[in-house]
Amino acid sequence: MTEAPLIEAKAVTKRFPGRRAFPWQKAPVLEAVKNVSVSVPRGVSLGIVGESGCGKSTLARMLVGLTRASAGTIDIDGQRVWAGDRAVNRQARQRIQMVFQDPLGSLNPRKTVRQLIEAPLIGLTGMAAAERRVRVEALMDLVGLRPEFIHRHAHEFSGGQCQRIGIARALATEADILILDEPVSALDVSIQAQILKLLADLRQRLGLTYLFISHDLSVVNHICDQVAVMYFGEVVETGPTDSVLRNPAHDYTRRLLAAVPGDRLEALRTGS
């Protein structure tokens, strides 16, 4: 815990204007994320769990710079990011990328696999076309996509393969931080297992740092070293996965854990 964090968010808050009944009224302010601080050391996988509407996706979008925080700061490797300095942001873009929940919806239906994966190389690096081609082929190999898929479109693939394309794209500029926003929740169990295995392998091989957003505590148990539990925009409990899931301190974490189905399955499978 003494190591300097690779990515650190301090007291980030996101406010949205709420709905007002009449145009002359003042819009109420909704706080989707309230004063949240997280810090992740290099190579660590932090799970952010919570139910729909708890603000975990908004937090993810702020961390990756898609949404601006209303208050608070975000540092990557000690450098303040998304604060307005374009050169800094551009550099940070290459280091932090995102994998989305909807495998098909995160891929432009009009583009080929090559065009999809090389997009960050075009937008963020000055790489020449021939070099990009080599890089795309290497990335496809890395995520387990067959080379002949390179000219196909997203709709020709299954959900799992689409997610592989999304992961290859996120790693194109050699990003070392991945924000994974429910990356396996739209996938079937056997495909989910394939993608989780791929993510675990990639983390080990490339020394990646993950922020893994999920509503599924069982998945988080498998892929995360640390967990932060969010409830109504706030982090209510955080700590090493083992201790949070085995000895939850907060009442909400306990309720969440109790609701996860599968007690009977576990009991039957382990024969107890």
């Binding site: 898609l66 873009r93 997009a119 937008g123």
Partner: peptide, 16 residues
């Protein structure tokens, strides 16, 4: 759509 967000993350300009 998420792919527009992904394009932003790829550093594409608004026009692009």
């Amino acid at each position: 759509q998420d792919y527009v967000a992904a394009a932003r993350l790829s550093g594409f300009s608004d026009a692009r």
